[in-house]
């Protein structure tokens, strides 16, 4: 499957479901997609998982933060020891990316280990 298509699927899928399901879905979606349609290179899958969820979380946080004039993010950034609200937006995005990336990498390795088992059989 085309990487771009996978990226679009990941972004759209996580965006559509994220509002109604647990945040761990951001791990599960890249995990499942990459498990079934992995790329040969680990780095590509990692990047896809990271970028897609990073973008989704970052965009959602940016839209909300913009509408709120950073009132809440500025207050909470201080609790987290961050400089300002926008930093918390980026931090949220990176956290999402990290979760997505790890999901994709795990899916990639599971695919490989299942394939190896099949090959050995």
């Amino acid at each position: 499957m085309n990487n771009l298509l996978k990226l679009v699927l990941l972004i759209c899928g996580s965006w559509l479901f994220a509002f109604n399901v647990d945040w761990r879905f951001s791990y599960l979606l890249p995990f499942i997609l990459i498990l079934f349609v992995p790329h040969k290179k680990l780095l590509v899958d990692l990047t896809l998982g990271f970028i897609s969820i990073f973008l989704v979380w970052l965009t959602a946080a940016l839209i909300i933060d913009g509408g709120n004039n950073s009132i809440l993010s500025t207050r909470l950034a201080k609790i987290f020891g961050l400089a300002n609200g926008p930093t918390l937006v980026v931090f949220s995005g990176i956290l999402g990316g990290f979760i997505g990336g790890l999901g994709a990498v795990t899916g990639h390795f599971l695919h490989n280990s299942l394939q190896k088992t099949n090959d050995n059989d």
Partner: peptide, 10 residues
Amino acid sequence: NPFTGFWNQA
């Protein structure tokens, strides 16, 4: 997370 986390209160 921006979907069910604190961002909902912004």
